[in-house]
Simulated assay, not measured.
Amino acid sequence: MTDRTTTGANPGRAEAVLSRLQLLVTRKLDGLLQGDYLGLLPGAGTEAGESREYRPGDDVRRMDWPVTARTTVPHVRRTVADRELETWLAVDLSASLDFGTGRWLKRDLVIAASAAIAHLTARGGNRIGAVIGSGGHRPGAGTPDVLRLPARPGRKEAQGLLRTIAGMEIQPGRTDLGGLIDALNRPPRRRGMAVVISDFLAPPEQWGWPVRKLGVRHDVLAIEVVDPRELELPDVGVLPVVDPETGELHEVQTADPRLRQRYAAAAAAQRAAIAHALRAAGAAHLRLRTDSDWLLDMVRFVAAQRHARTRGTTR
């Protein structure tokens, strides 16, 4: 992937980025699917398996009450992973994603994460679909249309989905993230995997409950895309800052250490609130930064998830 690439503005560049992503993902992520599970997250499946003793962190919805009553020791019912997985992406392409001061734009990481998930799920008859929001939502203007790409099997269909995501033109304003996530709840689908990719800058009150509802039926993965300048300000004197969602220009005096401290504290509190809301909703949480190796972060995340499942704990 080329640095700081705005892929949506150039279809040819988008195709080149996707081709390179495919090579990177194939080389580094192949092999993670060796074993019993076919998805990025090792889904629990629906076919009943053997029982084992309850361990702290196990899903109480899988309690095996007959065995528990017979042995007087809490047991949970293991399940066999489904052999066919349906994955849905909720892709937030708000105007705030067209920003980046690291190796990539946040938008590029959204496309990269989508490509990795598509690669890890679009095999063996697995299906992948998406709902995409590209900004355009302003208070009082109503909820904009959400582009829905039906879940289909096959690598060719997955590549077509990725091309659509990469070619989307971002509109001014912010996507209604809660409404976008709710689009995955309608109509109800069989149990599968749901992945929400966003910077989650909208207040958690707007999207926390939709994520919680999504987690009742599906395994949910939230991928948070972050730029280092959203966490702290550099000391560079007067810094002109443009709000990508409103176009407003602000000048910030970054030489003031107290201002930088207040900014860092507010940013830390914001990210902590995001993490808390996702944890409360039961979603797995992966944070990708524009200044780090996103593939390495994803590999470590998948390895940690599988290790936790092996030990019988939840994420």
Rank of each mutant, 00 (worst) to 15 (best):
A158D: 03
A281C: 08
G179D: 05
L21C: 09
Y263M: 10
P42N: 08
P74L: 13
V220C: 04
G167M: 05
L149E: 01
V146A: 03
F200K: 13
V220S: 06
W104I: 01
L23S: 13
P203S: 12
Q22A: 15
M63H: 06
L29W: 10
T87M: 01
D256E: 07
V211L: 13
R289F: 04
A266K: 13
K28E: 14
R212W: 04
D59E: 09
N10A: 05
L184E: 03
I170G: 00
G102P: 06
E157Y: 08
V226K: 09
L29A: 11
T164H: 11
A112Q: 12
L93N: 06
D227R: 13
G247F: 02
D145N: 11
L296Q: 14
L249Q: 11
S198I: 11
G160I: 01
F200P: 12
D64N: 15
D3Q: 13
W207N: 03
R155S: 12
V211R: 10
V299M: 13
R189C: 01
L109P: 09
L21N: 04
G154L: 09
A69C: 05
T26K: 14
L147H: 12
L120A: 11
L149G: 00
R103W: 05
R107D: 02
R70S: 04
D293W: 05
A266Y: 09
G135F: 07
V225A: 04
R271H: 15
S96I: 07
T101Q: 14
D3V: 05
F301A: 03
V236L: 15
A269V: 07
G154M: 07
R152Y: 00
E205P: 00
I117Q: 01
S51I: 03
I170R: 08
A141C: 08
R311I: 04
G178V: 07
L249H: 09
M1E: 04
T101I: 12
